[in-house]
Design a protein around this nucleic acid. Structure first.
Length: 683
DNA sequence: AAAAAAC
């Protein structure tokens, strides 16, 4: 991680030593700077290509030793140079590389801001591709998966020679601007704590072309990989029909009850406008966790609240937060921050709190990945008061200098046990460190060592309120471990999924959810997969289709295990065992919410018996596995399972249900669609 | 021990 940056390698001195002209950082406007038409770009590219063959020849003459050295010792930093090579090689080698169809078009585009986005994409797609391995057969990433490492190595070796050949051609100059390097460095692992920070990147950026940044952003908008692919069929410059697949979020307002109101929230000290809005939603009796924590939170104490999601935690921290903020006045940057582990959860919290915030004149916004930057940047520009965020995007904005959290006086972690996971911990710390040293509210389903570390470091003299046990204590929930023979697993899964009512299935991996959902549709059960590998738009659409009942079966990874609330989920089926008892309970918590009944069935294969016993024991579930086979009355009795029709649901029928709503893109008014129409999500 | 979290 701390390997020397390859930047040094190309210092002016070194270049001079090699008999090269100094690198040009700043140039006059050049072809690549201005929009080019396709023909011009082709011409340029062709020229590049010609040069490239020379380059290839020369490459072989280059000192092999040096290449090998780079290969072995500077892998990560090599990636910085990758972008040069990728770009340059593309022209000549398209026939043997799968992603070249992308590449060529990328070059076609010419315009600078696009380059930047493309570079971003290029770098990341390697990372993701490699990470994911063969995850999604239906995505094009995987065609390439196996080769990416080789290619990377190739590049590391070549880049150096290649670079020397490039002279001052306009395309090369683009590479010199420094984004590529910066971005790739970041991709290499230190990304968030790149010590050069965004400041320097931006300076260079601006020196190249001032006032470019927001154009860049705007063009940045489409995020999904699939979208980007599709985009290449169009000329980006021409306002083509963009197939963005992002989710949008808008703040909402709500009615408030007029006149006399009786509500338990008054007594807790919640601001009156908030109580009136709650009353209009029929919420007048605080849930236990709310009753327990609101008082202390209002008093400004640090609170550690333990209670399962669905127990009313959002209001437990939301109401005191808004009440306190309403007593002060905005300072031009956020005074409160709420962090959550998934985008869906952030969305849900923002949806729930935004009408309340509006009632007391608080500007609350959602900051999450997979959504366009524009509204989020504007929110900070206008001085948003509360951010509900997922860590990644907020750090992104922080690094850009777009977000300032120094005035945050109330920092809230929802699902803190999850936020304290290894993968999240550093981000959470970064964000908490960026906040002012004010009140901290930490809500968690469990208290383990990781949470304790957060508590130790960030909470001052916290008051702990434990309302729900972490153990299974929901009396309306029935647990049914099902002992199933391996060759029956698919059919049992399908028969259970085919039951009446809304059902959530959990699988271990993204690939697993895709596969199970496809198998279910093959068997005639309308099911959709939800996992973090989908574009944000796709995630939102499948969740909506599930909420609305068009798709009654949701097959999800643990992305949906926490916090997500869908009414009337009457059965949760754990197709694959959860990783631990916490996950078991979080998954289970998708059903039997708010006093409703629900069944938690778990498929247990013979070799998983021991594991299952341990998980259930830790979760405080006493149920013994029930031995079952497909089509039996026992299975039906336990889960409501029904035989499947076996008539496959055509893929098109499913896709129709989760298709993006067609809507005009890039409207002349700047793309503000449907503002002020109804609630939250639109796609 | 997987998934999620920026692009």
């Amino acid at each position: 991680m701390n390997a020397p940056r390859r930047k040094a390698r190309w210092s002016t001195e070194k270049r001079a030593a090699k008999g090269r002209t100094p690198q040009r950082r700043r140039t006059d406007s050049a072809p690549s700077d201005a929009p080019m038409n396709r023909k011009q770009r082709r011409a340029l590219q062709f020229g590049d290509q010609q040069g490239k063959y020379n380059t290839e020849a020369r490459r072989d003459d280059a000192p092999r030793q040096e290449r090998d050295e780079r290969r072995s010792s500077e892998r990560r930093d090599d990636r910085g140079s990758r972008s040069y090579d990728r770009r340059d090689e593309r022209g000549g080698r398209s026939f043997d590389r799968r992603d070249d169809d992308r590449g060529d078009r990328r070059d076609d585009r010419g315009g600078r801001s696009f380059d930047r986005r493309d570079d971003d994409r290029g770098g990341r797609s390697y990372d993701r591709r490699d990470d994911r391995g063969g995850r999604s057969f239906d995505r094009r990433d995987d065609d390439r998966g196996g080769r990416s490492y080789d290619r990377r190595d190739d590049r590391g070796g070549r880049s150096f020679d290649r670079r020397d050949d490039r002279g001052g051609r306009s395309f090369d100059r683009r590479d010199d601007r420094g984004f590529n390097r910066d971005r790739d460095d970041r991709g290499a692992g230190e990304r968030r704590r790149d010590d050069r920070g965004f400041g320097e990147r931006r300076r260079r950026d601006e020196s190249y072309r001032p006032a470019q940044r927001f154009d860049t952003r705007r063009n940045h908008e489409p995020r999904g990989i699939e979208d980007r692919r599709r985009r290449h069929d169009h000329d980006d410059r021409q306002g083509f029909e963009e197939t963005s697949d992002q989710m949008e979020w808008t703040a909402t307002t709500a009615e408030a009850v007029e006149g006399e109101v009786t509500s338990g929230f008054f007594e807790l000290g919640v601001a009156e406008p908030l109580v009136r809005v709650l009353a209009s939603q029929g919420i007048t009796d605080p849930f236990p966790i709310q009753a327990a924590t609101i008082g202390d939170a209002l008093a400004g104490k640090d609170v550690l609240g333990r209670g399962r999601t669905g127990s009313g935690k959002t209001l437990a921290f939301g109401l005191p937060m808004l009440t306190r903020l309403a007593q002060g006045s905005p300072v031009g940057s956020p005074r409160a921050m709420i962090l959550t582990p998934t985008r869906e959860l952030a969305l849900q919290i923002a949806d729930n709190l935004s009408p309340l915030a509006a009632a007391v004149g608080i500007d609350l916004t959602l900051i999450a990945g997979g959504m366009s930057y524009g509204p989020q940047l504007r929110a900070f520009e206008r001085g948003v008061d509360v951010v509900v965020a997922t860590p990644g995007r907020l750090i992104d904005l922080l690094e850009q200098g777009a977000a300032d959290l120094s005035q945050v006086d109330i920092a809230i972690l929802d699902e803190a046990d999850h936020m304290a996971d290894l993968g999240f911990m550093q981000d959470v710390r970064t964000l908490l460190d960026a906040c002012g040293d004010g009140q901290r509210l930490l809500f968690s389903a469990t208290l383990d060592d990781a949470v304790d570390k957060l508590v130790q470091k960030y909470l001052h003299d916290p008051v702990t309120h434990e309302v729900d046990s972490e153990k299974a204590s929901v009396t309306t929930m029935v647990h049914r471990p099902l002992l199933v023979k391996p060759h029956h697993k698919n059919q049992v899964t399908a028969e259970i999924a085919n039951r009446e009512g809304r059902t959530v299935l959990f699988a271990r991996t993204q690939l697993g959810t895709d596969r199970i959902a496809a198998q279910l549709r093959d068997a005639g059960v309308m099911a959709g997969a939800l996992h973090g590998g989908l574009t944000q738009g796709a995630r939102a659409r499948i969740l909506t289709a599930f909420r609305e009942g068009a798709v009654p079966v949701l097959v999800a990874t643990d992305v949906a295990a926490r916090g997500i609330h869908v009414d009337d989920v009457t059965l949760v089926l754990q197709v694959d065992p959860p990783h631990d008892s916490k996950d078991y309970l979080h998954r289970a918590g998708r059903t039997a919410r708010a006093g409703h009944e629900g069944v938690v069935a778990s498929i247990v294969l013979p070799h998983q018996r021991k594991l299952s016993r341990r998980l259930l024991g830790q979760a405080g579930v006493g149920a013994e596995p029930l031995e079952i086979e497909p089509g039996t009355p026992e299975l039906r009795e336990a889960t409501g399972a029904r035989p499947t029709s076996g008539v496959a649901i055509p893929e098109g029928e499913y896709l129709k249900l989760i298709a993006p709503k067609q809507q005009p893109r890039r409207r002349p008014d700047g793309g503000q669609r449907g503002r002020g129409r109804g609630r939250g999500r639109r796609y």
